[in-house]
Design a protein around this nucleic acid. Structure first.
Lengths: 406, 406
DNA sequence: GTACTAAATTCGTGCCTCGAACTATATGAA
DNA sequence: TTCATATAGTTCGAGGCACGAATTTAGTAC
C-alpha cells in the first residue's frame, strides 16, 4: 500500500494570475496613491481593461476607494484611487519598561497612541493590553480592524507562535506563556507577534523609500541590540525564529557578562545600557538615570555624555563589521533613540563600517526613516503583510512530498 | 512631458500559470524520476489532463523523455517519465593549486572528469579551460550542452559578472579580468561563475536529501573558509555578491595576519592552512606537505596530526557560533576534504555549535552529501538553476518604477 | 458646435486549468 | 473466453483570466 503525505506542491490554478496581479495593483495603489487606473496600467504594464476589472474587485473587497477626480490639460478626467483608510490595525510595542498601544490605518498613519508601564508578568500584560485594545475599538467604532500586531524585544517562533528568547524583558516564564491566544480571545481579532528588529525592517520596506531594497539589515539599539535581516525580499527568520541575534555574538570572549549568559556580546558594548555604564564609569552621577537623560545631556553638550555615546557608536560599528562581512547588505538601518544624534555619531559608525568592507561598495548606513515610530509602524507592517504581502508562495524550489511505501 | 522608466512590475499573464506548473512538474520529475503522469498528478495536485498537456510540452522541449513502462497489480501500465540525460553541462572547479573539469548530465552524474594544475594567471586559465571544454564537447558529441558553470574560491558579482574577492587565488588583477567572456566566445556556450561555497549550497539543495530546507549554511573548508548562505529558498548573495564572507570575521582582533589584510579572521584558525600551521608548530617535519598528507597521517593515527586537526575542528566550531547566533540555520553543512574524518571531528564541531545556541533546537550539523564532488556538483546546479529554477520572479514585494516628470 | 485628447469600459479571442467522460490496457473471476 | 474491475492516459466543453481593438465617456481648445 502506498500512502501520500499530501503537503501539496504549490501549483498555479486559473485564478493564480488574478491573485498575483491583484497583489501588484494593491501594492502600487498603496505606494502611489492617489493614482488613476490609466496610470496603474502604465506603471504595471497591464492592460487598461485588466486594471479596470481588478480595481473594481478591490473596491468591492473594500480595500480601495474611489478618490478625488484629477485634472489634465486635455481629455477625460481620471478618477484617482486610494486605499480605504477605514481599515485599521491595532498595535502594541512592548519594551522592558514601557508599552505603547496605538491605532493605525493601512497607510501606517497613527490615529491614536498612548503609553503605559509594562506590567511585571505576561498574564497581567495580556489582560491590560487586551483591555486597551477593546477600549480603542470602542472609541474608533467607525473603523474596521484588520488585525493586531505586537512587537516584543525577543524572538518569536512563527510556526508555533511561541516566544523563544527575551533576555531583556524580565517576564517570568514568558516562553511558556501564550500571549497571542488570550488577546485574540478577548478582542476577537487575530494577533501577530514579532520581534522588534524584524518589525523595524518591515517598516523600512513597507513605509520607507521607494526603491526596492534587496538586502537590508536593521539594527535596533535599545536595552539590547537586535538585528532584523531582510534578504531575497523577505525576512530571514531562521530556526525557531532565532535569526538576527547578532547582538549575542561575542566580540571579546573575556568581556563582561551578558544577560544571555554569554560573555562580551556585542550588546554588552553597544546597547543603551552600555552607554549608561560608560557614563557612570566616568562620572559620579547618582545611578537613577536613563538613556533619555543621557541623550539630553549629550544634546546639551555634556562632554562625558558625548564621550560615552561615542564609545557606544564605535561599539555599534565594530559589531556591524560582522554583519557586513557575513551578509554584505546593501543598506544598514539604525533604529532606536540613539539615532536622534545621527549628525554627530552617524559618521563614526559609517567609517567603522566602511573600514570593514573587504572589497566593493560599502553599504549605505542611515538612521531609521522615522525613528520615533519605527517599531510601532513596523508592527503595522507585520499585520499588513498578511493581507498585502505575498501569499507565502514558495520562492521557487518546490516543496516536496514524501511517499511512504508500506 | 512625462517619461516612464519601464522597469516593469512583475505581473502575471495568461501564460504564467503554465510557466509555474511547468516548473513544478519539471522539478518533480527531476527528483522522483522515473515517475508516471498519474503519480505526477497525485503528487502535484494538478489534474491528470493538465499533467498530460504539460509533460507533452516538456517532451517537445526535449527536457523529458518517455522511459520504461511500469507494472501494476491491475490496470493499464504507466509510462514512466525521466529527464533527458543527453542534456549535459560543462563544469570547472578552480582551486588555488588544481582545477577540475568535468561533464555532467542534468541529474548531476559525471560522465567524465579530469584535473589540471591551475594556471598562474587568468588569461592562461581562460584559454586552457576553454580548450578543455572544446575538447570535451568533441568527445561527447552525442550530448546537447546547456551551459558552463565555473566555481572559484572567491566572490562574484552576479550583476556585472565580475570577480570581486579572491584572497586565496593568487591571480594577478583577476578582478579586472573577464573570465566569463573569453570562455563563452571560445565555446559558444553561456558561462555562469559562482563562489564555491555558494555552489556547494546549491548542490545540497538540488541533489541532497528530499526534505525542503528553508535555511541552511554551507561552510567550505579549504585553503580558505567560505560560507554559502541559503535563506528563504534562495542563495543570499548580498551587495556585489559579497555575502558569506564569515571566514573574514575576526575572532581575535590581535590574531595572526590574514590573506585579506585583516587580523585573526576565522579563516586564519579554521582553514586547511591553519591545520598545517598547527602541525608544523608542533613537529619538525619539512615544510613541503599538503593537507592531504596531514589527513593521511591522521587516518594512520599520527598523534600530532590528530591534535592539529582537533584544534582546527574547535576553530571551525567557534566560528560557527557567529553563524548560528546571526542566522540560526536549520542545518549547517561542512564541505571540504576535512569532512572525510567526520566520525572523529564531527562531534567536536557539533558540541561547539550546540553550546552556542541561545535557546531552542540546535541546528543539524553534517558533512556534505558527497564531499568528493560537492563543489563540482554544485557548479552543475548553478547552471541547472537557470533552467529549472524560479524565473527570477520577485519574491513578493513589487519592483517599483520611477516616473520622471519633466 | 467641432476637433481633439485622454480615461475608462465593452467585448471578442486565446491561453490555461478543471473535471467529467472516454479510451487503452492490464488482472482475475465466472 | 468473457466480463467486471481497476488504473493510466486522452479528449473535450466550461469557466477564469489577460489581451487588445473598438467604443463610450468626459473633458479642453478653438
Amino acid at each position: 500500500m502506498r500512502r501520500i503525505d499530501f503537503t501539496n506542491t504549490q501549483v498555479a490554478s486559473s485564478e493564480t494570475a488574478r491573485d498575483i496581479n491583484r497583489g501588484v495593483l494593491l501594492n502600487l495603489i498603496r505606494r502611489r496613491q492617489p493614482i488613476s487606473r490609466a496610470d496603474l496600467a502604465r506603471v504595471s504594464g497591464l492592460q487598461r481593461s485588466t486594471v479596470s476589472l481588478i480595481t473594481e474587485q478591490l473596491i468591492r473587497e473594500k480595500w480601495v476607494v474611489n478618490g478625488p477626480v484629477g485634472r489634465l490639460p486635455r481629455g477625460r478626467r481620471p478618477t484617482f484611487l486610494r486605499l480605504n483608510d477605514r481599515r485599521a490595525i491595532l498595535v502594541a510595542d512592548v519594551r522592558p519598561t514601557q508599552t505603547t498601544i496605538a491605532v493605525a490605518d493601512v497607510n501606517g498613519r497613527f490615529l491614536s497612541q498612548e503609553a503605559m508601564p509594562t506590567p511585571g508578568d505576561p498574564q497581567t500584560a495580556a489582560t491590560h493590553i487586551a483591555d486597551k485594545f477593546k477600549h480603542l475599538m470602542q472609541t474608533h467604532s467607525g473603523l474596521v480592524f484588520q488585525g493586531i500586531g505586537i512587537s516584543i524585544p525577543g524572538r518569536v517562533d512563527q510556526v508555533t507562535h511561541r516566544v523563544m528568547f527575551t533576555p531583556n524583558l524580565k517576564w517570568p516564564q514568558f516562553d511558556l506563556f501564550d500571549l497571542k491566544g488570550p488577546i485574540e480571545k478577548a478582542t476577537g481579532i487575530s494577533v501577530q507577534l514579532e520581534n522588534a528588529a524584524n518589525a523595524c525592517a518591515l517598516a523600512e520596506v513597507w513605509f520607507g523609500h521607494m526603491e526596492k531594497v534587496h538586502d537590508m539589515v536593521v539594527v535596533t539599539i535599545a536595552e539590547g541590540v537586535g538585528t532584523g535581516i531582510f534578504t531575497n525580499g523577505q525576512l530571514a527568520r531562521g530556526l525557531n525564529g532565532m535569526a538576527g541575534e547578532f547582538g549575542h555574538v561575542p566580540l571579546d570572549p573575556n568581556g563582561p557578562l551578558c544577560t544571555c549568559g554569554g560573555k562580551g556580546c556585542w550588546e554588552v558594548y553597544a546597547s543603551t545600557r552600555a552607554a549608561l555604564r560608560y557614563y557612570h564609569e566616568s562620572s559620579a552621577t547618582p545611578y537613577d538615570m536613563n538613556f533619555q537623560d543621557l541623550l539630553a545631556l549629550a544634546e546639551g553638550g555634556d562632554e562625558l555624555a558625548l564621550r560615552a555615546l561615542d564609545k557606544m557608536a564605535h561599539a555599534i560599528g565594530k559589531g556591524l563589521r560582522i554583519v557586513v562581512a557575513g551578509l554584505a547588505p546593501e543598506e544598514i538601518v539604525i533604529a532606536g533613540e540613539f539615532a536622534r544624534l545621527w549628525e554627530r555619531f552617524g559618521p563614526v559608525i559609517e567609517s567603522e563600517v566602511a573600514a570593514s568592507v573587504l572589497v566593493g561598495d560599502p553599504p549605505r548606513v542611515r538612521p531609521a526613516s522615522d525613528p520615533g515610530v519605527a517599531r510601532l509602524r513596523g508592527t503595522v507592517a507585520v499585520v499588513l503583510q498578511k493581507h498585502f504581502g505575498p501569499k507565502d508562495r514558495d520562492a521557487g524550489q518546490d516543496r516536496f512530498v514524501s511517499i511512504q511505501t508500506h
